[in-house]
Design a protein around this nucleic acid. Structure first.
Lengths: 233, 233
DNA sequence: TGATGTGAAGCGGTTCACAGCC
DNA sequence: GGCTGTGAACCGCTTCACATCA
């Protein structure tokens, strides 16, 4: 509830700002204005100022933001001053791919465990990450201090997995199953739906909005022309 | 421009509706009301009706939607009645993982080529997909009738790759590089930023909005209490 | 002067509520 | 009676515009 005061749109942008600031710091720059930052990602400068203003007054009028200081603030705000331990539930192709994708390795996110229900797989390793029995989720999660669960199981199993990890006290979940999940208020779920992302692209390729309302199928009747016109623009 | 009349939020939902309808059809159901569909994904029924109304009048008052008929319409609208050929640019860990992830195999999306700039990798295969020299992108893309490019290269290289595939006539791009890209108006780019998704979760774990405005750092001055209070709620 | 911080306006998406139709 | 299709209200995010301050 109160945790909804800051929207996900904002936190996503904070993450992007921080990445950019890190680059600038590496390039030896000292200060940056919201205007210049905005240019970097074709974005509005007022938005950047407003995003930052949610957390305090970090800027200096007439100057801009001191890069090092702002980096520190954002790092703390995003909780990136601490390490986070992740597990992946589901060691099928996607789960295995994610475990093997070292994209997070150099960050403070670390994949420390995999889970599966298939007895064939339990005990094996992918890279140097062991696959555990999902039945033991709670104890392994506690022992290994896991904070984030990545759901990479088929759609049918995803809701049950969410409930299982929730019971074990997990508060942050990244869901790759192509299905909307119902979670407790105190659990944050981010769904990444690759299939519907692709299908959105397909829609665009198929002619996108051009077919809307007008590219009608034979069995669709048309009345009320005035609405059609309104929708058009 | 006109292609922006239908938002991505809508197309994402259409994709989800279709998946649900397919399941229902498989279960032998014939009709469904927007209300019942809405329950399935904890969502508002008016929204479903409005989404569908963008494309015609598919429902029957007093009855609901005929599942088979609606499936056909949505399949056509999303362009899923045709096959789509995909390539992945970047055969590093992420690219290889995606190539090896068969999640799309049983759909009408097919991964037909990989591209890389590393001479070591060119000519090899991942699964049964060959890695080509990015220099030959244009000719390979034309020969293999590639419609969608997946960008899985480091952030620094992503914009250049986008420009290269755009020049080759690609109109739909899925970007995994953690950086916002600038594209032509007639090219659709979907960015999936796993890092900023994770960092959003980290924000939530770190206390989320609780730290906003109030969890202030020493060097942040506070004036104008009235705004603070306003922001608080 | 130059850039922040922010009220107010603008815009787009969601939800409500109900007229219209089966 | 039941459910769609949709104007109107609502809500939240974005952009504008400017007072404020180093």
């Amino acid at each position: 509830m109160k945790s909804e005061r800051i929207s996900e749109l904002i936190t996503n942008r904070l993450s992007i700002y921080l990445r950019c600031l890190n680059e600038m710091a590496a390039a030896g720059e000292k200060t940056v204005s919201s205007e210049r930052l905005a240019e970097r990602f074709h974005l509005n400068s007022a938005q950047i100022r407003k995003d930052l203003a949610n957390f305090g007054e970090f800027g200096t009028r007439g100057v801009g933001y001191y890069i090092d200081s702002l980096r520190e603030h954002l790092t703390k705000i995003l909780g990136l001053d601490k390490d986070h331990r992740i597990c992946i539930v589901g060691s099928g192709r996607l789960g295995a791919a994610l475990a093997d994708y070292h994209g997070f390795r150099d960050s403070n996110f670390q994949i420390v465990a995999l889970f599966d229900s298939d007895p064939e797989k339990i005990g094996r390793k992918i890279g140097d990450v062991e696959i555990f029995d999902i039945k033991n989720f709670s104890s392994v999660a506690k022992r290994d201090k896991i904070e984030v669960a990545v759901i990479a199981v088929p759609a049918e199993a995803a809701q049950a997995v969410l409930e299982k990890v929730t019971k074990a006290g997990i508060k942050a979940v990244m869901n790759f199953a192509p299905i909307p999940l119902k979670a407790n208020d105190d659990v944050k779920v981010k769904t990444v739906d690759l299939t519907s992302s692709l299908e959105s692209l397909s829609f665009f390729l198929a002619g996108g909005a051009d077919q809307a309302v007008n590219g009608l199928k034979p069995n669709v009747k048309r009345r009320r022309k005035e609405y059609v016109v309104k929708n058009k623009r």
